[in-house]
């Protein structure tokens, strides 16, 4: 059913993603799919990396790390932007096309009153792509 699972990750908040990442691993094993980890970062230096290239290396290392855990093939793609906070949704939609993913799995927060002003990224990606989207709600 699924051959290529796209997983957006935020390297600055990996600790909160752990539960979602293991669900992704189970899913990938179930369908024997490859996993594409996608990162969106700023052009300017950030807490994770001082350049987009450093971010790319860190994401690559993270992907290899995950590969060692679940054994499925992995790849990465990084998008850098002047204003990543504002552009992340558009870039993820673009990423679904460019990575050729047939399933997007991403962690998202619980729905809240703030969603009216600032919709969740997962919700927006689901609205704007035609591939399957699996949102993993982080209860914490």
């Amino acid at each position: 059913m699924f051959n290529n699972i796209m997983v957006p990750v935020d390297l600055a908040h990996l600790d909160t993603l752990e539960p979602a990442l293991s669900v992704v691993a189970d899913m990938a094993k179930q369908y024997d799919a490859r996993i594409t980890y996608v990162g969106v970062t700023a052009n300017a230096p950030t807490s994770v990396a001082r350049t987009p290239q450093e971010y790319e290396q860190k994401l690559e290392a993270f992907a290899q790390d995950r590969h060692n855990v679940h054994g499925q093939p992995v790849s990465t793609k990084v998008y850098s932007s002047t204003d990543p906070i504002a552009n992340v949704d558009d870039l993820l939609v673009k990423a679904t096309k460019e990575t050729g993913a047939d399933l997007v799995m991403m962690a998202t927060h619980l729905p809240s009153h703030l969603d009216a002003v600032m919709p969740s990224h997962g919700g927006k990606v689901a609205t704007h792509t035609d591939v399957s989207v699996f949102l993993i709600r982080l209860t914490h």
Binding site: L11, A12, L14, D15, V48, T51, E54, Q57, K58, D65
Partner: peptide
């Protein structure tokens, strides 16, 4: 705090390699 995730990643940026340059 924020640099925590970095500690979790493996030592792909071992000091000997140095920090990668910006584009070019």
């Amino acid at each position: 705090m924020d640099n925590k995730p970095q500690d979790q990643s493996p030592d792909e940026n071992a000091p000997s390699e140095g920090i990668p340059a910006p584009e070019g």
